[in-house]
Write a protein that binds this DNA or RNA. Structure first.
Lengths: 135, 135
DNA sequence: ATCCGTGCAAACAGTTTGCACACTC
DNA sequence: GAGTGTGCAAACTGTTTGCACGGAT
């Protein structure tokens, strides 16, 4: 974790280490609030969280997704293959999906587009109800 | 437009009519701010816009998408086949994509999921750079 | 010793809520 | 006339910015 930070030119601080550790452990998009809570006693100031997450996102170490909730979620990306999520529209539970065949569609779309020079990435989320909320 | 409102139990007011008209005309996800601006002189109070859009979204007449920007966007859905968008990560330009073969993937995902009872919908957005911003 | 990272306070933007009035039915 | 829709003001939440201090290199 520390080498990862160094490789990207970040200083190795307790805050960023703990933050990455927590994101890595949770293994799903986490809102800033939830992340702050998860860090508990050693949590950095929310301000610092936002700043760190922004930097880490620019470095490509974490990925931002809003999941159509209006609030930012972040997930740890290294060692993780490209994947997507199902979100429960009642309780906001999130499950990971390890399959993605959008790659070919992405190429097709890039070719069909008139206004766009190239496509860098995509986000695909499914929305439904988890078993607990389904009844 | 007025019959559409009536069908869903809404009263036919100038505000909602203008709002739907504008969304229909623009034909792409519009932020509340942009929508308010587009309505110009006759724009309802922003508060009313939020309330109306929420109601219309619950009725299925408009659809909310955040496009990972952190702010709510809405688009007019009747008469429009299911579709997706490409967003320019520099200037936020939006282009529509009329092809979507995610349906089969959605079924596959629903079957593979352990925690989820059913999937209602999905959102798929591509991110890249438009020709203007590419250089 | 240098300079990035952090904390605190305050500002900000988007969104929501309460209440009184206006307009649709 | 009854009751939903709207405007205005104020509250709220998530997020950003400024500045001074502390810690990593």
């Amino acid at each position: 974790m520390s080498t990862l930070l160094r490789e990207h030119g970040f200083r190795v601080t307790k805050g960023k280490q703990a933050l990455l550790q927590a994101l890595h452990a949770h293994n799903a998009p986490l809102s800033v609030g939830a992340l702050h809570e998860a860090l508990g006693k050693h949590a950095p100031n929310p301000t610092t969280l936002y700043r760190s997450l922004l930097d880490l996102a620019n470095a490509g170490i974490v990925r931002r997704t809003d999941l159509n909730t209006g609030i930012a979620h972040f997930e740890y990306t290294p060692e993780r293959p490209h994947h997507h999520h199902i979100v429960c529209t009642s309780c906001n539970a999130i499950e990971e999906i390890d399959l993605c065949n959008v790659g070919t569609l992405e190429k097709k779309v890039a070719r069909a587009s008139k206004q766009f020079a190239h496509i860098d990435t995509h986000s695909l989320e499914f929305f439904g109800h988890c078993r607990a909320c389904a009844q």
